[in-house]
Simulated scan of single mutants.
Amino acid sequence: MTTATALTGVIPPVCTPLTPNLEVDTGSLTRLVDHLLDGGVDGLFVLGSTSEVAFLPDGHRRTVLDTVIGHVAGQVPVLAGVIDMTTPRVLDHTRVAVEAGAAAIVVTAPFYTRTHPVEIEAHFRALAARAGVPVYAYDLPVSVHSKLGAGMLLDLAADGVLAGLKDSSGDDGNLRGLLLERRERADVGSFSVLTGSELTVDSAMWMGADGAVPGLGNVDPHGYVRLVRAAARGDWEAAREEQERLVRLFRLAFVGGTRMGLNSSAMGAFKAALHLRGIIDHPATMPPQIPLNETEVGRVGKYLATAGLL
């Protein structure tokens, strides 16, 4: 089992640019990484939800790992999602990520079959025992149908199993309870808590979170860095103002309306925004996601212009 010093700051979940024939566009991916690093981010998270990990074949996953880790060359830590349904499958992804040089792995609860908290705990323990790098839990109940309990997470932290948490549950009450319990316990070490809710980063930081993993940070990393740095120095008015600007920008995620699922709309909008900003060559998303049409892309451009990004 391996632990690490606490991660803090802005660690965006990196989009996966694709070519028109749905291969990984490595040239666009390296430009996107440079865009994020220029924005001042503190780390990168590849192969998460915003990376379309659920849609990517294993070969695409390996290409993303090799491209990003090789290009970053140690400038910031690169965390790798090893998300899959069962412990053996996640162990396979973990081996590949560690061989590629990932600084840490990010793991959800098992899914598809319903799992008991005892099984989820065993899953994290098995991964930590074999990974050789820090393990971060990813709380994503909307997709994996299991909520990670604060007590279990902090007990695993105390045992050196978990180095931190990415909380994408959208449950601010439970997040606050976890942060409070973390302060009350002396045995959890440097357990890092990062919010994945890009619309409430200021409030999460005020409650005591250590940083953010914002999907919209692909489009505007500078904004999230300004927000988190303002919060870190206690300038809550500046943090609130920046957060509200980003909330307005996030409206681009809904341009697909009822014509498609929210995932298709948000991923299509993020990639359209990156394409309009000249960062990636194509806005393609992986099937069965529905692509945005010309009118919807035009609406994305208007949101970018209003935010001063075009």
Rank of each mutant, 00 (worst) to 15 (best):
A305N: 07
D34I: 00
A4W: 11
G132E: 08
T19W: 12
L179G: 08
G261D: 15
Y112L: 01
T86R: 15
R31A: 12
D167V: 02
M205S: 07
G151I: 05
V90S: 15
G39Q: 06
R114W: 11
L91K: 08
G301R: 02
H222G: 10
G308C: 03
Y112G: 00
R95M: 07
L56D: 00
P77G: 03
H35A: 09
G48P: 07
F270V: 08
P117F: 14
A231V: 07
F191A: 09
L304A: 05
G74A: 08
V201K: 07
S146A: 15
G43C: 08
T86I: 13
V76K: 11
A54G: 12
N218W: 05
H93E: 15
T50I: 11
D58N: 10
M205C: 08
G217D: 02
H35I: 07
D66C: 00
A129D: 15
I120V: 15
V53S: 11
I83Y: 09
A73L: 00
R61M: 02
A239M: 13
Y136F: 15
T5N: 13
R185F: 14
L179C: 13
G308A: 02
L154Q: 08
I279M: 07
V161L: 07
A4C: 07
A230F: 04
P287I: 06
D155V: 12
T285M: 05
V219S: 03
L154G: 06
M152Y: 06
I279V: 15
V14W: 09
A104M: 09
L180S: 12
Q75I: 12
E119I: 00
V144N: 13
V142G: 05
N21P: 00
V76G: 06
R130K: 15
A128C: 01
L148R: 01
D210N: 15
T3A: 13
T63Y: 01
V10Y: 04
Y112K: 00
T3I: 15
V72M: 01
A122M: 02
E242S: 09
S51A: 14
I279Y: 05
V64G: 02
R95S: 09
D187S: 12
F45E: 03
A163N: 10
F191N: 10
D155A: 13
L292C: 02
H71G: 03
G59F: 08
T30E: 14
L304Y: 04
G196C: 05
F45C: 04
R61H: 08
T113P: 12
E121T: 11
A307G: 02
G27A: 15
